[in-house]
Each structure stands twice: as structure tokens, then as C-alpha cells.
Design a binder for these strands. Structure first.
Lengths: 236, 236
DNA sequence: TTGTATAATTGTACCGGTACAATTATACTT
DNA sequence: AAGTATAATTGTACCGGTACAATTATACAA
């Protein structure tokens, strides 16, 4: 494991364990250097990670401070995208409605940048947070990249599997979101009514070399989904 | 202006002017070093900025590549938060419904971390993108930090003003979003019907020293608002 | 007490370097 | 043509350093 990641993790743990609050001051850079016995740039790198993650903010001439929003019940928008971690103490479970191999239609092949003749895994799941209906998700994985999936993997966490078992590293994702009304099938699955409000997010996940490998459409239960996004500058 | 910001801007311009597409390769690091006559770490910093912004991705052993999503009509979620730039060729205009000084209620004072006795500016605007109804926004600015606002400033861009004229630097923001149904007043302003779907985003903007100075609530017209978020790893 | 100049603190910009792992190109074999 | 070892390419991790601007603390004056 990389030094700066390790250090970032430890600092974050420290913050959580000591239940530090917004504005609380952390040890100064030089102190952290000594404490972890690494160079300045390594500490800087670790702190930068934490800053991006919304865990701290740094103020030159002053110090390093804890950043913490104060609204329980809001999930990070990014933590719900394919990852079962980072939901804090909440439990994410799934019902698998479908797991099959198929040929993609025009839209899917377009978004994944593959031919309509290539194989894709098709997965449909209902997801729950603490037992409450959270969203329905339909996703497509390029079979050439993710050659094998089974019900167990798909019930748990697909992303965990493809990273740990297949050694695939995920690079970045594009998420497209819009608000709309529920259609018949979605409404039935979410136990809501046709025409009810909903949030839809389409995501395209890319390997670190830029190849798309997963296209997914998530439809959220509007009453049980609220998200927080911690954004950073620079605001130019 | 900082070197690495300057370089980042120039590289981004280059990409746009030459209309490079996803996957196109940029000059290698060493070439960029020579080209801009700066050290490796400065180029690295510039590229890191662009990577965070979703403009490029880097692949070690291979090169630096252009990243570009291909859905016109989707606005970056962050560019619509207080900034009139970065909307591409789209035009953002506003109708100011109210601009007044008042005492904050409990909710507002809580979110801004001030007493209910402190003064705040209250602003209510309807916002249009290319003339189309986009959202209604109600925002509160701490008067002690932003001592003066007028109708002209508020019609244009508040953030531009407080940064350039007041020299205030914005640090970070927390955004809370959820989907719901329109209430009477919102529906009227957005020319929609009561109960129609909507996206609501509350934002708290902080100075770079962590002090909140702006709390705002935006209610979006669900038919004219679709957003893109370009996310980066690491996905652990 | 209140302001004000001065000094100490502290993170950031930028330089230059070494080592290395991941990728890609090349040469070689089968 | 297709695989395979080898070398060249290329970005990232990490080190250590100087200079500086923003903040905060200190000492002093009004």
C-alpha cells in the first residue's frame, strides 16, 4: 500500500475515533512529518487526498482543520455508486431480479463503445438501505472485461469482486442525472405509483486506461434518497 | 497567476481549440516540461488539476489522454452553483424577485452558524438558461462578510462580485440534494403544477477559512435540468 | 482597552532529483 | 501469423530543499 494512502487512512481514522468536529485543528505539517517519518511532500499528498474527500481543509499560515458536515441521513452520492463501503453504519442489501448474458441494444453498445455483437452481462437489482427500498438498478458489463459473474457476486458487491478477484482498477466515471416521473415497471418495483417523482442516474464506468466496462441506470425511490456532495474549489 | 494554473488553462484551451476527443493523446510529460520551461512537479500539478476537472486522464507507462463525455445538453452540476462561467455557450440570466436585509430564522442561522440577531441579505431569483425557466433560488448571505449588494450585482453574478470586488476567496461547499414535489409557490414561479417532480439542492458555501457565508436553496425545473458529474477514483 | 507595527508560525509553489511499476514497442522464436 | 522474452517509454511515488504569502501571536504605543 502506498505511504500517502496509508497515512491518509490513519488520519481519517484518528478523526473518527476522536470524534473531531468541524474546525478542530490537527497537528501541523512538520509535526505530521515527524510523526509518520516521511518527507513533506508525502504528507502533503496524503492531506490533499483527505481534502478532496471532504475530510479536512487546509489554511496556509494557520493550520489543518477538520471538515465535517452535520446532516445525518444524507449519503455521499459517490459512495452509492457501485460500492458497498462508505455508507457509514448503514447496510446495503440487494435482490437480484436478473443475471444473464445478452447482446446490447443500440443505446447500451453506444455507451459502452462496443459492437452490438459483443456479449454483455445484464443485471437487474433492487437495492435496500437498512431494509428500506432505495433504488432499482439495471447495469451492463462488458463480458470481454468482466468474463464471469454469478448470483453470489452480484448480490454482494460487483465492484469489490472485479477489483479484488480480477485485479481490475477503475479509473473514472461519468454520471448523468435527471429528474422525472416513474413509469409502470419502476413504480411496481419501488412500490410507488406511476407518475411519482424520481431521480435517474446513468453512469458509465471506465477502466483506468479509459475503456468503458459498465453502463448502469439507477432509478431512486424519491422518499428514501437524499445525497450530500462535498465540493472543493478552486472556484474561478 | 500561479504557473500551474496558467499551464492548466492553456492545455485546456489547446484541447478545445483543436477539438480533441476522448482518448486523444497529449504530448508526454517531458515534452510539456520543455514546452512550458518548468519543472516536472509544476506540470504534474497542472495535469492533476485537469484530471480533477475531468478534462484528461493519465496512464502511467502510456501517456496523457483527453477525457470528454459526449452528451450535449448536460450541465456540470458544479458550474450551476453560483457561477455564470463554465456553461459553455449557454446564457444564464436572472429575474430578481427580492433583495433585502433581514434577520435569519432558526434554520438559516443554524446553517450559517450565526445568531438570529445577525443581519443577512435575502435574495430570491428565477434563473433562465438560454431563456428557458431553469430554477428558483433563495439565498442568504452573511452581511458581516458580504456587506453590500445591489440589484445590478445580484442580477449578474454574486460570486463573481464577491470574489473580484471584495477579494473574498471561496473555499468549499456542502450540497444537500433530494427529490420531491413542487409546492404552490414554487409551482407558480416555475410555471408548473403543484405536486410536479423537482430536484432541490441546499448549499452551504464556506470561505477558505471555513466560515459559512452563503446558504442557498435551489428548486429546479425538472424538465429543463439535467446534470453531468465527472467523478474520479480512487475507488477503494 | 484598542489599535498597530513586528515577528513567528505555517501551508503552498516551485525546483531538481532517484527509483520504479505499468505500458508499449521491438526483436526473436516457433 | 502468433506468441514470448527483452528493451524503451512514460507517469507516479517519494525524497529533500528554498522562497514566500497568509495567518496568528507578540510587543508596543496611544
Amino acid at each position: 500500500m502506498l505511504k500517502y494512502q496509508q497515512i491518509a487512512d490513519e488520519i481519517e481514522q484518528y478523526i473518527n475515533q476522536h470524534d473531531l468536529k468541524q474546525g478542530d485543528k490537527l497537528p501541523v505539517l512538520e509535526q505530521l512529518m515527524r510523526q509518520y517519518a516521511v518527507s513533506k511532500s508525502t504528507i502533503t499528498k496524503a492531506l490533499e487526498l483527505l481534502e478532496r474527500k471532504g475530510v479536512i481543509f487546509q489554511l496556509r499560515g494557520s493550520g489543518i482543520f477538520v471538515r465535517r458536515h452535520n446532516r445525518p441521513g444524507y449519503m455521499s452520492l459517490f459512495s452509492t455508486q457501485g460500492f458497498k463501503r462508505n455508507l457509514g453504519d448503514r447496510v446495503l442489501t440487494s435482490d437480484v431480479l436478473d443475471l444473464s448474458i445478452m447482446k446490447p441494444d443500440e443505446t447500451v453498445s453506444q455507451n459502452l463503445g462496443i459492437s452490438t455483437e459483443a456479449d454483455v452481462y445484464h443485471i437487474e437489482r433492487i437495492r435496500y438501505v437498512d431494509g428500506e427500498l432505495f433504488c432499482v438498478e439495471e447495469s451492463f458489463y462488458v463480458k470481454e472485461i468482466v468474463p464471469y459473474l454469478n448470483r453470489e457476486i452480484v448480490t454482494d458487491s460487483i465492484f469489490d469482486y472485479i477489483q479484488s478477484a480480477l485485479g481490475i482498477t477503475i479509473g473514472f466515471s461519468d454520471m448523468y442525472m435527471q429528474v422525472g416521473r416513474l413509469q409502470e415497471k419502476e413504480a411496481r418495483l419501488l412500490q410507488l405509483n406511476i407518475g411519482d417523482p424520481t431521480l435517474r442516474i446513468e453512469s458509465i464506468f471506465h477502466l483506468s486506461n479509459g475503456t468503458p466496462f459498465d453502463y448502469s441506470r439507477i432509478t431512486y425511490h424519491y422518499e428514501h434518497s437524499q445525497f450530500v456532495i462535498q465540493a472543493n474549489g478552486p472556484y474561478l
